[in-house]
């Protein structure tokens, strides 16, 4: 019987209530320096991020290196506390167990994570079966129950337990190790799984296997995913909604088709246009963006994208754009999308 660690995972607010609501999430990292170890600068890794994760959906998060995707993931996991901002999990405030919210221990059981580096996240000295069984045992399952669950999960991720259960991580390929990590993330029967670049280190033929597996497991276990990747094709394949991040902020968010077919933010358009084309007849001739992403230590005033935006005007330096509502849950933080913002193209472009 393993009801003991499962009963906390039941749906509370019904399907319409978001599984996770994040409001004004912020995480700054101080950079220490000098003789006194004083703070000499601040990395604004996540800087006021608001979004929801709906029950049963896959929310994709894309953006360039350093824009704050992994920091967001670690905040969602509560591997560290946010500086400010609130997190509500199925109607309950996270981290306020006694004050009527959900305690961190319960929250962490229902939210699990899979990382890019399949090797670093497994204990090299444990057979993979023991790695998977570890958390369930800590949470009160007997040895035998935990082992049964580990073997069931190995089978579910396509690794026949009789030939794989006793292997060590170094006896597996990268794709197989990532399957083990997925199995381990599912061992506590979580409701939400955060996947941070889960297929980025895999070869294409193996990537496709793992993506198919993730889709299958989501249906089988009734999961909700937050899927972080820099690969726009993979995100389009797996996501229901997509969030585009730039320098610690949300640039655009919406249903996957709206983002890919009608991107409203110039940054989203540039990202999409940067994808290499497999058709040599359709080669790019101009790079959609110049330069590298700027540093989150000293982000530009107003719109943070303005230093690379070909459509930037004075208003973009003077005022931070509001989230313009384009309907159907499609939002974009660009003055052009906001009628009356003062940008000469506001209301002209879709």
């Amino acid at each position: 019987m393993d009801t003991q660690i499962d009963q906390s995972g039941v749906d509370r607010g019904g399907p319409a209530q978001p599984l996770l609501t994040l409001e004004g999430l912020q995480k700054h990292f101080p950079i220490k320096g000098g003789l006194m170890g004083r703070t000499v600068a601040t990395v604004r890794a996540v800087d006021g991020v608001t979004f929801t994760v709906q029950k049963g959906e896959t929310l994709g998060i894309v953006g360039e290196s350093g824009c704050g995707k992994s920091t967001t993931a670690r905040l969602l996991m509560r591997l560290m506390p946010p500086d400010t901002g609130t997190m509500i999990f199925d109607g309950e405030s996270v981290g306020e167990g006694n004050a009527g919210g959900i305690a961190l221990r319960d929250y962490r059981r229902q939210v699990q994570m899979v990382f890019q580096d399949s090797y670093a996240s497994l204990n090299p000295r444990l057979p993979i079966e023991d790695s998977i069984a570890f958390a369930p045992k800590v949470h009160g399952l007997s040895d035998a129950e935990a082992r049964t669950r580990a073997r069931d999960l190995l089978a579910a991720v396509g690794l026949a337990p009789q030939s794989f259960a006793r292997r060590y991580p170094h006896e597996l390929s990268g794709g197989q190790r990532q399957r083990v990590n997925i199995a381990r993330a599912l061992a506590l029967r979580p409701r939400l799984v955060i996947l941070d670049e889960p297929v980025s280190a895999l070869d294409k033929s193996v990537e496709a296997q793992v993506l198919n597996l993730l889709v299958e497991l989501k249906a089988q276990f009734g999961l909700t995913y937050v899927f972080i990747s820099h690969d726009l094709n993979v995100v389009q394949f797996i996501s229901d909604r997509v969030l585009v991040m730039y320098l610690g902020e949300v640039a655009e968010i919406g249903p996957v088709d709206a983002i890919y077919d009608r991107p409203a933010h110039p940054y989203t358009r540039a990202l999409l246009a940067s994808r290499p084309s497999m058709d040599p007849a359709k080669r790019r001739t101009e790079p959609p963006l110049t330069g590298d992403p700027p540093n989150p230590v000293n982000p530009p005033s107003g719109c943070r994208f303005r230093t690379r935006c070909t459509l930037a005007e004075d208003v973009c330096a003077a005022k931070k754009p509001l989230m313009a509502d384009l309907g159907g849950g499609h939002l974009a933080a660009c003055h052009i999308a906001s009628p009356g913002s003062g940008h000469s193209k506001a209301g002209v472009m879709a």
Binding site: A208, N212, N233
Partner: peptide, 19 residues
């Protein structure tokens, strides 16, 4: 075939079995 490109959402990706 197993390289994700274009809109392939909802489809099962073709894979090469094994390694």
């Amino acid at each position: 075939n197993s390289t994700v490109h274009g809109n392939m959402r909802g489809k099962i990706l073709t894979t090469i079995p094994g390694a």
